[in-house]
Design a protein around this nucleic acid. Structure first.
Lengths: 87, 87
DNA sequence: CTGCATTTGTGCGTATGTATG
DNA sequence: ACATACATACGCACAAATGCA
């Protein structure tokens, strides 16, 4: 999914749409454990959004336990994510 | 123009104000073709801004076709700039 | 080749102002 | 008032390549 796929009119916030793309990449192994996910700048260019929005996506992944952000380094895919409801 | 002349309150973004100074220098020959423009660090010191802002000015000059940036070298004044509207 | 300074590239942290729904 | 989103701006740190001694 690229900039063309982002729906700014949708009910789902743009940052969540981007997060969904990254989560899908993680789930299917395109982004394996330990791998660094695209940088905020990468997401800005790829999806054509503001850095603030790209940061929102990364923050969401972090909150959900998918990645760990290392200052000045990037965000890396974690082994297992934090369960949100016991699944 | 130096740091004293930058207006952080103006509608025109700081990076554009700095770019305008450099463009004026190019237009009047103070920065001739082939000449390297001040480095990002130079602009930071001269105008008292963050590197991010100085980079914005250089990026603008590059986008407008005034200079060509060579990694690890600097940005050099080009022969002619890319026309933006047919001028 | 080594050591150092310079300069751009990259990347995250943070804050402010503006606009929209 | 609040969440989302974009643009701008400052701060800090490390990497890579170049140039010079």
């Amino acid at each position: 999914m690229t900039a063309d796929e982002i729906d700014h009119e949708a009910e789902t916030p743009v940052y969540r749409q981007i997060a969904a793309v990254l989560i899908a990449d993680i789930e299917r192994g395109a982004l394996p454990v330990g791998r660094r996910i695209p940088s905020e700048s990468d997401l800005v260019k790829r999806f054509g959004v503001a850095r603030d929005t790209a940061r929102g996506a990364v923050r969401y992944l972090r909150d959900e336990g998918y990645v760990r952000t290392v200052p000045q380094r990037g965000s890396y895919v974690l082994e297992r994510r934090r369960p949100t409801e016991g699944g």
